[in-house]
Simulated scan of single mutants.
Amino acid sequence: MINGTVPLPHGITARPARANDRDFLAKMYRDNRDDLRMASADTDYIENLIDMQLQAQNGGYGEQFPNAIYLILEKNGTRIGRITLDIGPVELRLVDLDFIKKAQGKGFGSSILLWLMKAAAQTKKPLLVPARRDDFSMAKFLTKYGFVEDETMSDDVYARMNWFPTADEIAGLTEIKPRPAVHGSV
Rank of each mutant, 00 (worst) to 15 (best):
T43S: 07
D31H: 13
A167T: 05
P89T: 06
G88C: 04
E151K: 01
T166D: 07
E91Y: 14
F65W: 12
P178V: 09
I69Q: 09
M138V: 12
K177Y: 02
V186C: 15
R30Y: 10
A171G: 01
P126W: 14
D96G: 11
A121E: 07
K118F: 12
M117D: 07
G146L: 13
A167M: 02
D134Q: 15
Y70G: 09
A171D: 12
P126C: 10
F147Q: 01
P7W: 08
P89L: 06
Q55R: 13
Y145W: 11
A39C: 10
K101V: 12
A103P: 10
A68S: 03
D98P: 02
R30V: 12
A121G: 04
L73G: 01
K102I: 14
L97W: 01
D35R: 13
A17E: 12
F108S: 02
P165V: 01
N76W: 13
E175R: 04
L71W: 03
K102D: 15
A120Q: 10
F65C: 04
K75F: 03
T78I: 11
L54H: 14
Y61V: 12
R160V: 00
H183S: 15
L142S: 08
Y45H: 12
F65M: 05
N67D: 14
L128D: 05
A56H: 02
Y158H: 14
D51L: 03
I83L: 09
A171Y: 02
D44S: 04
V90W: 05
P66G: 07
Q57D: 10
D23C: 06
Y70E: 09
P180D: 08
N76A: 12
K106W: 02
G109R: 00
L94A: 08
A19P: 04
A139I: 08
A39Y: 09
N3L: 09
L142D: 07
A68H: 00
P66W: 06
Q55F: 03
R18H: 13
H10V: 03
P89F: 03
L94F: 07
G60N: 09
D150Y: 00
T152W: 01
P165E: 03
L94E: 13
K144A: 15
T78N: 12
L36R: 09
M117I: 06
N162T: 05
M138R: 06
P9C: 04
I46A: 02
Y61T: 13
M28F: 08
